[in-house]
Write a protein that binds this DNA or RNA. Structure first.
Lengths: 144, 144
DNA sequence: TAATTTAGATGGTACTACAAACTACCTGCG
DNA sequence: CGCAGGTAGTTTGTAGTACCATCTAAATTA
């Protein structure tokens, strides 16, 4: 600890990035809590969101998630056991398996979406309607 | 479900929240990738950030993280073994243990910070400087 | 001082993710 | 056609993370 004072040196080289990261941690904290209340992992929540309006093969889903195929298999298996997802062999490729959301899964996703909206409302309500629109527009442009 | 058409892809009830969440996932994805490159968990990155300019007891650190004390103990133990953190008995309370960052830990945190800034730059550069400032200001107001 | 509370560590369990090996299937070259 | 090689998904084994319940030592209090 005999180095130069690391404390003041580099805490504000890129404030937007810092704010983005901090906001992300805060948001994920809320999401995590709500997911936990429903015995859902964050990854499984992503799966439900991704499969909301799509039907994907396991590999495509893994690509969306940035996970390994094997992780995805396990995930989908557990979710299928809980009735949130279902698997069906692809009609055109005997190797492939399509994964899609069940009504129960969609309902749970819906429920969590509204819980999240409610949980984040106190934060977003700090802004006027116009500001919210502006924030959303800006944020959308920095989100791929 | 009520008669508000939950079935017709209720993807627009709260667009700002959706965008916040999506942005959070994107940001955390980048963070996760960079952390993985340095064999760091996201939680350990948070620890380094929290202890950047502070020295905390295990319980206080656990509170910051929202984790159980025991999880924190394990985490700190592993990080200490890697030379990123250090423990010292509190001078005033024989039960308590202070945790603080080492120069190596601070250096790694620094490194990751710049990696993250670099990784996010292509996204933030979509905006002009003025827009970046505005985004940051707005985002800060919705982040506790 | 004895009883209670608090700080942290430990042990056991469950979940998540990965990599490597495995099975089934498709594709294309000879 | 028929087999070699690639692709899709699953299985198996391992490591990390987090929780809970329990344990020890130290402080508080009664």
């Amino acid at each position: 600890m005999s180095e130069t004072e690391a404390g003041t040196r580099s805490l504000q080289p890129d404030e937007l990035v810092d704010t983005l990261v901090q906001s992300a941690f805060a948001t994920m904290g809320v999401l995590n809590r709500i997911c936990a209340e429903h015995d859902l992992s964050l990854t499984l929540l992503r799966v439900l969101a991704i499969l909301w309006d799509r039907r994907l093969r396991v590999t495509a889903l893994a690509d969306y998630l940035g996970l390994d195929k094997s992780s995805t298999t396990g995930m989908v298996g557990r979710a299928e056991k809980r009735g949130l997802l279902r698997r069906a062999p692809s009609p055109h490729d005997g190797r492939a398996v399509d994964v899609f959301i069940t009504p129960a899964g969609a309902e749970l996703a819906e429920r969590i979406r509204s819980d999240v909206a409610r949980a984040l409302a106190p934060m977003t309500d700090e802004l006027t309607h116009a500001e919210q629109r502006r924030l959303q527009a800006l944020l959308q442009r920095v989100t791929p």
